[in-house]
Amino acid sequence: MDEDRIKIVLPDNRVITLKEFFEETERAHKELAKLSFEDKVRILVKLQEIARDWGQKKDVLVWKI
């Protein structure tokens, strides 16, 4: 698959190549890594709620923070 040639339309109507799309995704993950520990813990609690309410993990203990 030629990631340089295949293009994708983003929700904001930008058209980028698949290669650029993967690079943007990578950058977004790295940006998330820069969040404060407090913000990450708040996101973690949301993930625990999703796992409990939507996933197959009814026994998940959702942290009380």
Binding site: K40, L44, L47
Partner: peptide, 9 residues
């Protein structure tokens, strides 16, 4: 998680 993006634990 302190050093990476948030993930489930």
């Amino acid at each position: 998680l302190r050093w990476t993006e948030p993930f489930f634990t």
